[in-house]
Nucleic acid binder design. Sequence first.
DNA 1: ATGCATGCTCTCCTTTTGGTAAGTATGTAT
DNA 2: ATACATACTTACCAAAAGGAGAGCATGCAT
Lengths: 146, 146
Amino acid sequence: MMVFGPPDGEQLAHTRALFAQAHADAAPDPRVEALVVELIGRVAGKWTMLVLEFLTEHGTLRFTQLARLVEGISQKMLTQTLRQMERDGLLTRTVHPVVPPRVEYALTPRGLTLGAAFCGVWVWAAENLVEVEAARQRFDTKGQMP
Amino acid sequence: MMVFGPPDGEQLAHTRALFAQAHADAAPDPRVEALVVELIGRVAGKWTMLVLEFLTEHGTLRFTQLARLVEGISQKMLTQTLRQMERDGLLTRTVHPVVPPRVEYALTPRGLTLGAAFCGVWVWAAENLVEVEAARQRFDTKGQMP
DNA sequence: ATGCATGCTCTCCTTTTGGTAAGTATGTAT
DNA sequence: ATACATACTTACCAAAAGGAGAGCATGCAT
């Protein structure tokens, strides 16, 4: 699926206008900038995004279920990730006072919309994966023979 | 501006459907997942996003111009950020063989669309900034008095 | 000869990040 | 009495990120 062709002026201008508009609307506030950077940084940690993904798919999950799904994550990182997301109001943490303890996590509406907001990036990556990899190869090989 | 109300089932289902659809379309490939994580991680480094921003706004910029605009960045980080973006085909680097050297950077169409893809996150942050900060305060203050 | 401007690169050092492994609390099962 | 399960927390350590500052190549101006 070709989303954009050659550096066509019209397409470019359109994309630029979209971007500039969003910035004009939303970005004069440095606090927004800070939140975006911090938030993206968090989501980028690879764990947050995976948690977001699994909770979106499954609805509600327990600590150990998440630990199994997000394979490779340590308990420490899972706890940390979940706490941060809870603090930001992205998910709810429900402790059932039983033994052994049972804690359930579920996204809030705000968590769901954040997941949706990252869809654009997902789609971009899927659409551009091949081209990016090709670009990297070109970049890495050229310059090796003088 | 209220974008979503209480945990209304319909809204939730809709958002979830959007997210799940995008994932069904784009995410079965682990390479996509890896690229998304890596890419978001990069953009999150706060420098990449700023460079993306300024180049979107200004079109073409020289090294020193970028260094001035992206205040706080070190030469090392600016160079590194620009090289990575060039490698990924997000921007072009044009060296003019004059003295003193003159190097110009401009986004490729792919760089522009990536910027556009991050708009969703940007908008989300602007819309949810107040609520997220409130949620953090609530989280931080509760639990301090037993 | 000296200095300056640009766009880097390289080294050193500090901060941050993240993993491993162990410990904790609690009640139930054996 | 002992072991176990769950959901953490804490201490320690290694790796990675990132900032400061110096060095470098080049040619023109003084």
